[in-house]
Design a protein around this nucleic acid. Structure first.
Length: 612
RNA sequence: GCCCCCGUAGCUCAAGUGGAUAGAGCAUCUGCCUUCUAAGCAGAGGGUUGCAGGUUCGAGUCCUGCCGGGGGUACCA
């Protein structure tokens, strides 16, 4: 039998009831249907419809009368209690508890927890992480990696086809700097010992020198211009020129530079893969800039042919958006730029995967680049695909400035994760001791299990702290805060999950029964009803997270859920419930809560543990 | 100079397409462990949403100007 899965997006279910009611009043009901939304305050009910006030002007009637009219036309069915009209014309809605109870059973029996697959499914390419291979990954790559991975998991769960593609910086100017540095300043021993660290040192060395020339050029006042001696400026200029030359030679397939590139790459990749393993991040494809190199000449020719690009000053080739807004696609020395390579990437992705959308999870500072890139791509003929810059703010230190080590360098990702896990271990072990002293029933765990908890908690804390932030704003990286372990943190969720699982262990209850053949849910207390409602809002929350690609919608849903669950946990004894039916109902609520927490954390790329 | 983003409680952040008394956590204060893990729960105080106008039944949200912070602005990516 073919069963059409009914949506458990509660807002949408209620909106579907309002649509016919509103259709009798206005030509286009959609904007007004959309005004049905969750209440901010539970005393106003579960949902509210705010359309009556807006309709007042167009219909020339008093809002409260319109509200009255809408309610009269509304087919409540077995879904809603009789609505109340309040204030200027709010329609307050309350779902029938019996309806919630039935939905809960359906949800429990579904391995997707009632979340309907997207219709129609789309194909997304997600471009995230994109480290420069020349140096160890650092804190700057964290947000892109974490946010991109979470979005990939979310979209995939919703039934979309997702292609993750790591656009490695393995071919640009920074590689020219390394080549120049390696050829002139490499410490052979250091390179043998730890190739990536040595390459990183060389990169930083050359960049610092070259940047000095640039900075000095841009300095306006005589005072800062004198920071470099004439000789110093000359050296800086030479280094910058030499690096550019090495880049151009690499691009022109110079045998020696290609050989060095092939020598460096495996080491770099291994280093990067290590970070991804620790973060539980995987990519379907890793097509770095080098992959696109052979295509770049053709891209520029095509751009010229189609009059997207034009010759600029000094033999460069440019795309002109406005008088002052110009992007370079080929430099005067013949080297191509990231705009060229990004355009080649778009063409390749369109050919290979035919996506409906390409998402770029990249730092907000590249907003102008992407605006230009997308405009150029549309002009070049790719006007059917949705190109979106999923931008995010900087990671700041506690002082509010971009995060740095004490020495002023970038914080390396590996060291950062080490510290997170070590701090997590300290906090966890201390708390276990405290609980023991207090007489709590804390499980005895093996060292291996404790190690797993430390990792789950430490890495989870880093990820959750990042994802729970609105991605658009900068965020302050603070170990103490993310590992404080109360409030809206990964640990709170992981702990809520573990405590929940311990109920089933303690009662020797097999969860399978609550999934294969769920018992009826009894929602007579406010705590039980509130928990049921919150559980059923899962699909709505995931939909919201998808709309604007905001993983923080998932964390704020989780936070609401776990607070509601805490209220329930505090007030509703489960194993010692008054009747077997009530015990079953509460076990059902517990199991569903655990499954939802686990699913949501999984969509965020955060592990759960069964005991902690 | 021009363009973009951001200013919300002492601190870090929420607030759905404009909705009801702007919410959380931390910190401060008051209660709660002979009942399923107190990394918890219940409660209190704390706000001219940077400033000044405007739009309307209603503005943290939209518009204008100003102040403050950040970023970008053709040969880095």
């Amino acid at each position: 039998m073919f069963l059409l899965r009914t949506s458990m997006n509660l807002a949408r279910v209620i909106q579907d009831r309002f649509r016919p009611a509103l259709a009798g009043l206005v030509a286009d009901p959609e904007p007004y249907v959309a005004m049905v939304k969750p209440t901010q305050d539970a005393k106003h009910g579960d949902y509210q419809a705010n359309c009556a006030m807006s309709l007042s002007k167009t219909l020339g009637k008093k809002p409260r009368d319109i509200a009255q009219d809408i309610v009269a036309r509304l087919d409540r069915g077995d879904l809603l209690e009789p609505p109340e009209i309040a204030g200027p014309g709010f329609i307050n809605l309350r779902l029938q508890s019996s309806w919630l109870a039935r939905q809960l059973q359906t949800m429990a029996a579904d391995d997707r927890l009632g979340v309907a697959p997207a219709q129609p499914p789309k194909t997304f390419v997600i471009d995230f992480s994109s480290p420069n291979v020349a140096k160890p990954m650092h804190v700057g790559h964290l947000r892109s990696t974490i946010i991109g991975d979470a979005l990939a998991r979310l979209l995939r769960f919703l039934g979309h086809t997702v292609v993750t593609d790591n656009h490695l910086g393995d071919w640009g100017t920074q590689f020219g700097m390394i080549l120049f540095g390696y050829k002139n300043f490499v410490h052979d021993n250091a390179f043998v010992q730890d190739p990536v660290r040595e390459l990183s040192r060389l990169y930083v060395l050359v960049r610092e020198i070259s940047k000095a020339a640039e900075d000095d050029d841009e300095a306006n006042d005589a005072e800062s211009r004198t920071t470099l001696t004439a000789e110093g400026r000359q050296i800086a200029q030479l280094a910058a020129d030499a690096s550019r030359k090495e880049t151009a030679k690499l691009h022109a397939a110079d045998p020696e530079n290609v050989r060095l590139w092939q020598l460096f790459m495996p080491h770099c990749m291994e280093e990067i893969e290590r970070s991804y393993r620790r973060l539980d991040v995987k990519f379907d494809h890793t097509h770095g800039e080098s992959f696109y190199n052979p295509m770049l000449r053709g891209v520029v020719e095509s751009l010229l042919e189609q009059k997207v690009a034009e010759p600029g000053d000094d033999g460069a080739i440019i795309i002109r958006f406005t008088d002052k807004n110009v992007a370079l696609v080929q430099k005067r020395d013949g080297a191509f730029t990231y705009t060229t390579s990004d355009l080649a990437t778009i063409r390749h992705r369109m050919d290979a995967w035919h996506p409906d959308a390409i998402l770029y999870v990249v730092d907000f500072r590249q907003a102008l680049h992407f605006k230009n890139l997308f405009a150029a791509a549309r002009c070049w003929g790719f006007d059917q695909v949705a190109l979106e810059h999923i931008s995010f703010g900087s990671v700041l230190g506690k002082d509010g400035k971009p995060i740095k080590t004490r020495e002023g360098g970038a914080v390396e990702l590996g060291a950062l994760l080490d510290e997170a896990i070590e701090r997590a271990a300290q906090v966890y072990d201390a708390n276990v001791q405290e609980s023991r002293d207090r007489g709590d029933d804390v499980p005895d765990l093996s060292d291996a299990e404790r190690r797993q908890i430390h990792e789950a908690v430490g890495v989870g804390a880093v990820k959750y702290a990042d994802l729970s932030q609105n991605r658009a704003s900068n965020y302050v990286f603070d170990f103490d805060k993310m590992l404080a372990m109360n409030g809206n943190t990964a640990t709170y969720m992981q702990y809520a999950y573990a405590r929940n699982r311990s109920i089933f262990r303690k009662g020797n209850v097999d969860v399978a029964r609550f999934r294969a053949n769920p018992p009826p849910a009894l929602l007579d207390t406010p705590h039980e009803r509130a928990l049921a409602l919150q559980l059923l809002r899962l699909e709505e929350a995931l939909a919201r997270a998808t709309e604007e690609y905001h993983p923080s919608e998932i964390t704020s849903y989780l936070w609401d859920l776990s607070k509601t669950y805490s209220g329930f946990f505090q007030n509703c004894p489960v194993l010692k419930a008054e009747t077997p039916a009530l015990r079953d109902s509460r076990l059902l609520l517990c199991d569903l809560t655990a499954r939802v927490i686990r699913l949501c954390l999984d969509l965020l790329g955060i592990r759960t543990v069964e005991r902690m």
